[in-house]
């Protein structure tokens, strides 16, 4: 199977290349990037063929592509890929507006290609077990979920994460979608309403939000919160956390998805103290699942709709924060 990467704007592209190379039978044909500095740099760093335009990459007729551009450019790239007959794995959030997301759906349906949303946390064994325990009723009826997905400010890796026109927002659109998707997946229901406080207390130099606390009510009645803040300093021993405490009538589950780490001190590294994970990378399982679904001509396990609903929760948070009221994300059209 021949796979191309469309844009190296998102830092996950680097990891995905390695993930793909570990899968037998997959050939990474290269990547497209209209930024020539980035093109040259990553072409060298990963020994990858660089295509200056997306059309050039697609002219190689890849079976599938991974779209890792800036959020606001996903639509344009997904349209090109679908029209070239390539199946798509799209980085989250899948888009920055409802309109763009709907257009993406229309184009992949018309072209008859598959679309998977990159939600790697669904492939974390801890979260998979948590979901099974909730669904089997082991915790009794669930009362509440407290979620934390905070991190350092990603602008230190890629500036566009904190540029509203390219990212669609800041911390809230960056982080909300992961936990929103996990809640939908664990409880098999949509988010009924969102109340959010959103602000920028951490970085006066950017035009986006850097902090957000969301309080959701799921359609099954569970109260679930999300801390989507860029509240960890750059010196933190890791990029951040994904944590979820699920409180049921019979007991609680404490998920700390990246807790399996060694404490490492090094003289040479940029971070003198680091939490170095030793569990398998959930991205690897996600990429494998994508490749498998393409090979088997099957609908991927994480769909466009999953990407869409999670994005609507993030967009609802922005509406809620500016209007100071609860917002039903399914009403955003």
């Amino acid at each position: 199977m021949r796979i191309g990467i469309m844009s190296f704007a998102h830092l996950h592209a680097e990891g995905y290349v390695q993930n793909l190379r570990r899968i037998p039978g997959v050939e990474v044909i290269g990547f497209s990037d209209t930024d020539s500095e980035r093109g040259r740099r990553f072409s060298q760093a990963y020994g990858l063929r660089w295509f200056w335009t997306h059309e050039d990459l697609l002219a190689e007729r890849p079976d599938a592509v991974i779209v890792t551009s800036e959020n606001a450019r996903h639509r344009e790239l997904v349209e090109l890929a679908a029209q070239a007959g390539a199946h798509v794995l799209c980085e989250k959030p899948i888009a920055t507006t409802v309109e763009d997301a709907l257009a993406m759906k229309a184009v992949v349906e018309e072209a008859g290609v598959r679309f998977m949303t990159a939600f790697p946390m669904r492939f974390s064994p801890a979260l998979q077990t948590a979901r099974e325990m909730v669904q089997s009723g082991e915790l009794g009826s669930v009362l509440a979920v407290v979620g934390v997905n905070h991190s350092e400010n990603p602008k230190h890796h890629r500036a566009w994460f904190a540029q509203k026109d390219l990212a669609g927002g800041g911390a809230v659109i960056d982080h909300t979608v992961h936990l929103a998707d996990l809640y939908r997946w664990i409880f098999d229901c949509e988010v009924a309403d969102v109340y959010a406080e959103v602000s920028n207390p951490f970085d006066p130099e950017v035009d986006t939000d850097t902090a957000g606390v969301l309080q959701l009510r799921l359609q099954n009645g569970v109260a679930a919160s999300i801390d989507a803040s860029w509240s960890r300093p750059a010196e933190y021993p890791r990029w951040g956390h994904l944590k979820m405490e699920i409180l049921g009538e019979k007991g609680a589950l404490l998920v700390d998805a990246f807790a399996g780490h060694l404490n490492v001190w090094r003289k040479t590294a940029g971070r003198s103290y680091e939490w170095l994970g030793y569990h398998p990378d959930p991205n690897q399982a996600m990429i494998r699942a994508f490749v498998k679904s393409v090979a088997a001509k099957k609908e991927p396990s994480v769909t466009w709709r999953d990407g869409f609903e999670a994005m609507r929760v993030a967009l609802a948070a922005y509406v809620s924060a500016s209007e100071k009221r609860r917002v039903d994300p399914t009403m955003l059209r």
Partner: peptide, 25 residues
């Protein structure tokens, strides 16, 4: 937001957000 168990259980859980004028929460 408040979550409660059934009447007999006395379980009660609350998540609250306090918002400040300067954007702190």
């Amino acid at each position: 937001r408040m979550s409660r168990g059934d009447r007999a259980s006395a379980l009660e859980h609350v998540q609250a957000t306090l918002a400040y004028d300067d954007g702190a929460m």
